[in-house]
Amino acid sequence: MKAFSYSRPDSVRDAVAGVAADREAKFLAGGTNLVDLMRLGVERPDALIDVRHLLGHDIEPTADGGLLVGSGVANSDLAVDPRVRQAYPVLSQALLSGASGQLRNAATVGGNLLQRTRCVYFQDVTKPCNKRQPGSGCPAREGSHRDLGILGTSEACIATHPSDMAVALAAVDATVHLTGPGGERTVRLEQLYRLPGDDPSRDTTLEHAELITAVQLPPPSALYRSSRYRKVRDRASFAFAVGSIAAAMVIDDGLVREVRIAFGAVAPRPWRAHTAEDALRGQPADAADFAAAIAAELELAEPLRDNAFKVDLTRRMGAAVLTELAEAQQQGSGR
C-alpha cells in the first residue's frame, strides 16, 4: 500500500479545508470500500482525513415530517430504525440485503453512496480501465461483462454502481446534503451521480473536497409506505446484485395513482425509471401493463453478449414486484 498520512481534524470545516488543499487527499469514514481499494492499489491517496467522528450519527425528524439521516449513521442502524422500517420499508430491505453484518456495522450512509464499482477490471490494477486510468481502454466490452451495465453506459465504460441503499433512496425521492469549500448545497439523489460518457473517472457530480453530511427523506406517505426491494443475486446472502428493483406504488380504484421505480445493477447509477413511471400513472394496475411499461423503459438498453439476460430479468422482476405491491394493497383495502 502506498504511504499516506492520517489525520483526525476537529471540525467539518477543517476536514474540508484539508482535503481541498491536497488533490490527492481523501475523506475516510467507515473505510469498508476505500481501505480495500487502497490495499488493491486502485485508490492511492497521499492523505486520509478521518471524518467518521465529525459526521452526524443521528436520524432526526425534519420540520415537514421527513427524516434527516446523518451521513455517519451506520448502514445497520439505518436499516433497523423503526421509523424507516414503517415509513420507507424499501430502504430497510435494501440495506439488509447488502454486504454482511460486519460490513453494515462499519459502513456509513455517506460512504455507501460513494462506493466504487465492483467491475473486475476496475479492481485489477494489472488491467486497463478507463475509470481507474483514463484513456487506457475497457476490456469489459469484449471480456467479462456478465454483471455490468445495460443502461446509461458508454463506449468508454459499462460499470455499474454497486449500492443497494442508493437504489432505494432514488425510489423515495431522497436528497443529499453536501458541504464543500464553496459552501453547502443539496442535490436530488439521482443528481449525485453522473453517467460516464467519455470521462468515466468521475462517478459523481461532487467537486473535490465536497462532503456528504446528510441524506434527507421526504415526509412519509402512503406511496413510500407501500414500497419494497427485490434483489436477484447468485447466492442468498452477501453478494452484489445481478439485478435489483426498488418500487413504491399507490393504487386508487384499480388505477395507478402514483409510482416510483428504480433499478439497481444495470447502470452506472441507480436507474430511476421515469419512462415506465410516466407510462403507468393513471393506467390500470395489472401485470401486463407493468411489464409493458418496464419494456418501454428498457428500449434504451444496450446489452452486450453476456449481459443481455438482464433485459428480461429486469422486466420480469419489475412486473413481479409491482404486481405484489398491487395485490398487497387490494388485499389491504378489502379488509
Binding site: 473505510g31 486520509l48 451506520a74 453484518g101 460486519q102
Partner: peptide, 12 residues
C-alpha cells in the same frame, strides 16, 4: 458491534 478489523485503520 462486530466489524472486520482488517478494514479499520489503526488510527480510527
Amino acid at each position: 458491534v462486530p466489524v472486520c478489523s482488517c478494514l479499520v485503520a489503526a488510527g480510527q
